[in-house]
Nucleic acid binder design. Structure first.
Length: 245
DNA sequence: CACAGTACAGACCTCTCTTT
DNA sequence: AAAGAGAGGTCTGTACTGTG
């Protein structure tokens, strides 16, 4: 069987990192378009290879490393270039989640609206982006977070490049409380039960619960009366109890 | 000054994919 | 098949800024 041009295989298979058929179709289409484009230019240049993970952004392969900023090719910059600039200038010594979040959020925009010059995005693009996130079933808080990241990147890079623009991703209306649920803390009796079980089993792992608590609160009270880890969150408590008990 | 909005950081979770 | 790694989603909190 013939192999694909530039590849030592007859097929390219990789995860599209989604369970949504709609998103998968969009990403597959985009990858196919990139392959077409790549093969078209194959004889004349060594283009960035499709068939790799994270095709959406120009700085492919930098998700866990601070991204190198591509030079802007126009008056401002494309969104993918803006992400590179943003991460180069603001991403130093920032956690990997900061880089991932920036790339993921802008990747979503590129998936839906394309990789345009910052000045070329319109309110219609922003609204379409909002609608696509809502169609995916994201909650208001997640949409808010994604928009916040995109907005801040565009604002920062526009400022860096000396461009005065109205960010179309600002002041986009959506229900920020849609689908948002409260996270209630574990009731006190449940926490006491965990403590009690830990004391009953009395081994090294169980005492980690006390160690964790003692980092935050002076161990002034006996174990059973000691407060649980300071502001220990409900899910963390569950995980802790689930792992240790 | 109070409040809303913005721009994050961080913790924790589920799910998928890869490796063993 | 199990374990581990990584991606992505959710919620909460803080600091700061703009506005009425």
């Amino acid at each position: 069987m013939p192999t694909w041009p530039g590849y030592e295989t007859c097929k390219i298979a990789y995860s599209l990192r989604t369970r949504s058929a709609k998103i998968a179709a969009a990403r597959a289409r985009r990858a196919a378009d990139q392959l077409d484009e790549y093969w078209y230019h194959l004889r004349s240049q060594d283009a960035a290879l499709p068939g790799m993970h994270r095709l959406r952004l120009g700085n492919v392969g930098a998700s866990t490393q601070p991204s190198a900023a591509p030079e802007p090719v126009s008056g401002t910059a494309k969104l993918s270039e803006a992400v590179g600039i943003y991460l180069r200038l603001k991403g130093k010594d920032r956690p990997v989640t900061f880089h991932r979040g920036a790339e993921r959020s802008c990747g979503y925009v590129i998936d839906v609206c394309g990789d345009k010059d910052l000045m070329a995005y319109t309110k219609a693009d922003a609204n379409r982006f909002r609608d696509s996130l809502m169609e995916r079933g994201l909650t208001g808080s997640s949409i808010s977070r994604i928009f916040g990241t995109v907005r801040s990147i565009i604002n920062f890079v526009a400022s860096e490049l000396g461009v005065i623009m109205t960010n179309p991703f600002g002041k986009v209306y959506f229900d920020r409380s849609a689908g948002v649920k409260d996270r209630n803390p574990l009731p006190d009796d449940a926490l006491r039960k965990v403590q009690s079980e830990c004391q009953h089993l009395d081994d090294d792992l169980r005492w980690l619960v006390k160690t964790d608590a003692s980092k935050r609160e002076p161990p002034s009270a006996p174990f059973l009366c000691a407060p649980m880890p300071w502001r220990l969150r409900r899910k963390r408590s569950c995980a802790l109890a689930g792992c240790i008990l």
